[in-house]
Design a protein around this nucleic acid. Structure first.
Lengths: 208, 208
DNA sequence: TCTTGGTTTGACCAAACGGTCAAAAGAACG
DNA sequence: CGTTCTTTTGACCGTTTGGTCAAACCAAGA
């Protein structure tokens, strides 16, 4: 039975996780040092290790916290809703995640770039099964003529790519846009893009 | 006047750059060690440093080589060509780059994730000016009714995101697709996507 | 063959790294 | 106040890191 954490424990654990997220999301696991995290958290290195047993423990805690919510937007895709609206809503949820949690997005990107050493199993199991399941739904919509015929897997990849790009490549986006705000234009553009892609046209033969 | 490199120099320099690309593209600059590169290149560490003066020199050489060709596909976008075909061709060129040079794409992604410490100036100057220039062309096409009205900047971002995703998130894409080949489906999907997005419809008012 | 210049390496260095520990400092509470 | 438990830290440890260097090795032309 574990005791309830004191308020100092709460504060410092939160500070360490936030500092770790800052540094890990920028430099990846191997490129991050405990001293960097300690300084960002405003603690000494031994004090860090009083709250977390190792560098890897901080990293693992962050990845676990991330994965708790990472798949939620896709899980919420509802087979009984209006198809185009369901997908547009998914795009909006992912874009909001990118805007509100860019460090988490970059932490994930770093993990994937490194070959997903910690979460490869989750990708091959949880993620794959979830995408397979949702791909069936989307394929059903396409077969029923409710959306234009489209490869469901690449449709989902496109949503990941387009939304996470604004968090992961933030520096580049801002360098190009100057002082214009990225996310307003992005929301309009993505709405337009998926509306045009998915709204069925006369050319798309409808099923009975 | 520098002497012509011997064949051993050519071979070893190439081996070091290839090995460096392998490791840097996976772990980033800080997460990469000289020993890793040396082992991947099949050389001893002091021998590495006989060909390159420092770890940073290898990294810089790789970034410079990358940037030589990185912007070419966008530069080739031709104002006098057919608008939809020009953009589709740009998408195909970028997708081919992603397929044929995935390590370079990941090296770039790592640099951006780290805040672009080496190439921030290039992003703010060369890249921004190039995109500004091409955005004018695309805006002109839209104003003339030759493509559907669309934000040129986010259009370009979308092409970057969608094509580089297949290289940068390769592990995730393959985990989801299983043994299916990513790039065939991607090419079809992207063709379809940009055709639908850009082909003007009756709803888009044409200019005189 | 010998010599010259390019190539390779074992041994080494100082700094940075992840992590430990005992002891000091501080909070909490009767 | 004194006691107990939590928190913080300076000093330290073994390893890894980027990098150096003199010496050994080797290829090739005269």
């Amino acid at each position: 039975m574990t005791k309830a954490p004191t308020r100092i424990q709460k504060r410092n654990r939160a500070a360490i996780l936030s500092a770790g997220l800052d540094v890990f999301s920028q430099y990846g696991f191997r490129g991050t040092t405990l001293d960097q995290i300690a300084e960002a958290a405003g603690l000494s290195k031994p004090n860090l290790l009083y709250y977390f047993p190792s560098k890897e423990a901080i990293h693992t805690a962050l990845l676990e916290r991330l994965l708790e919510n990472w798949l939620d937007p896709l899980k919420a895709l509802d087979a009984s809703g209006d198809p185009v609206q369901e997908i547009s809503a998914y795009v909006r949820r992912k874009l909001a995640l990118s805007k509100d949690f860019p460090r988490e997005s970059r932490l994930f990107a770093n993990e994937i770039l490194q070959g997903a050493p910690w979460i490869e199993g989750i990708l091959r199991n949880d993620l794959k099964h979830l995408v397979d399941e949702k791909a069936v739904i989307i394929q059903g919509w396409a077969d029923a003529g409710k959306i234009a015929p489209v490869d469901p897997y690449h449709l989902i990849f496109s949503i990941w790519a387009l939304t996470q790009h604004y968090a992961d490549f933030d520096v580049q986006v801002r360098a190009v846009l100057g002082d214009r705000a990225p996310y307003d234009g992005a929301a309009v553009f993505l709405d337009q893009l998926y509306d045009k892609l998915l709204t069925p046209t006369q050319a798309d033969g409808k099923a009975e």
